[in-house]
Design a protein around this nucleic acid. Structure first.
Lengths: 253, 253
DNA sequence: CTCAATTTGTTCGTATGTATG
DNA sequence: ACATACATACGAACAAATTGA
């Protein structure tokens, strides 16, 4: 609890251009999320917060006000501020790290196809990813769950494959359709993830803030001829995803 | 290029509490990073940006000013604004998803041990993770690379193991020491990742903004008795990490 | 050379938000 | 609650540099 307060907090605030009270509020919110302060608990007094965060009293007050608007706390004059709710952990989306599990996890997804306006973005392929197909179909869709969009998918799919089953590819996730095709042999599949920031379209589609953190997946599937038959960019809401990785398991594999 | 501009951009701005010009600047910066605008290119005129982002002229100007301060662009009256530099991709830290590669990647790391002030945080263990050891040593360290801190590690290590080799555990990463011990059998290792936000200490230690995006790893190592001998929380700078996952590889390996 | 169009630079006024003491 | 200072955001008007007709 008594984390020794460091001296130059101001520098830390100024590395962000968000208002201070927003930064403070985010930190308090996290403490409630993590259960450091549980429902029913009294949080630190304004004076303690003032000292800890090295900001003026009014500024912490503004921060606490934000939490109150979110129904996370109630403030009682003369008594203190109390936690009433804990925001639920909404990291319900597990990102998979092997092919079987990945295909399995998206088998029943129903993507919401989006119209493609303008020219599709150019293909991002490195030399390691195999050779490009002659022509690609470009698909764009919104991935939904519990009525909420959680990812924006932009997929290049080898046109000859797409043209065999255009309807299936529009109705289901491209990867799961690919995996179900018998006449296709998948030799390699590779995926990279980075933490990114939502651009305008992503922010609007996913209903998050411009530049809010995202998990950006770049996935390439190569067939037995060495051709990249699938090149997908999938942008997930950063606050909805979770990786779960078995590094080692000698027991039951 | 001619992305159809949506109507209610204001809502998107207001989901974030960052100033608008900062949000716009971040978007422009990304375009340069991604190479949409290359060094030498002229970027959109203030008027175009004004229309695209639906903000006042002065506001886009402030955004462009930010980029100029970062030496990414030069502005020339009557001509336009030109890209002069492309920020280098600094995602040099690959996060591994299997035990061998993980241990290998941190073998030569030299963590910078930090003093532990106050009581260590309580252990986070789920039932799946095995049983807790009787007692743990708590270690805290800063992971460095190229003279820059990239992660803050907080590790609970079974005390009986720590006590056998306290010096080695202080000098090297705990995981790589663990992997090198012959009298220890590691039965399972499990890791979860979520995208988080830097708290005060993390922000200060890593030199990033308060609430800047991070990758939070939670790693549990269980020995052959089912005891969680290592429970580590490692918080990485979000802008320095990259996952690289082979989902499927029928070729070699 | 002049003129007009384009594009960034500058300034004003006003309103609201942020932060301090 | 108040007074003060500074930041953010808007719209509008005008100035200055560049370009090409």
């Amino acid at each position: 609890m008594a984390q020794k307060s460091a001296e130059r907090l101001i520098e830390t605030y100024e590395r962000s251009r968000s208002p201070r009270y927003v930064q403070v509020a985010a930190t308090l919110r996290r403490r409630i999320e993590l259960g450091e302060w549980q429902p029913g608990d009294k949080i630190s007094t304004l004076e303690e917060l003032e000292a800890e965060f090295q900001v003026a009293r009014v500024t912490v007050r503004q921060a606490v006000e934000l939490l109150q608007e979110e129904d996370l706390v109630v403030r009682r004059q003369g008594k203190g501020t109390f936690v009433i709710n804990r925001p639920l952990d909404q990291r319900w989306l597990k990102l998979e790290t092997d092919w079987e599990a990945l295909v399995d996890s998206i088998r029943d997804n129903e993507p919401h196809a989006l119209p493609v306006e303008g020219a599709p973005p150019r293909l991002r392929l490195t030399s390691r990813d195999g050779t490009a197909a002659d022509e690609y179909a470009f698909l764009k869709s919104l991935q939904m769950r519990e009525g909420e969009p959680y990812a924006l998918a932009q997929v290049h799919l080898a046109k000859e494959i797409y043209d065999c089953h255009p309807k299936r590819f529009r109705r289901r996730t491209a990867l799961s359709v690919l995996a179900s095709l018998d006449n296709i042999t998948i030799a390699r599949a590779h995926q990279t993830f980075v933490i990114g920031a939502a651009d305008i379209e992503t922010a609007q589609r996913l209903g998050i803030a411009l530049n809010a953190p995202t998990a950006e997946a770049h996935c390439v599937v190569v067939d037995d001829r060495g051709v990249a038959i699938y090149v997908g960019d999938i942008i997930y809401r950063g606050d909805r995803v979770k990786f779960d990785i078995d590094l080692l398991n000698t027991g039951h594999s």
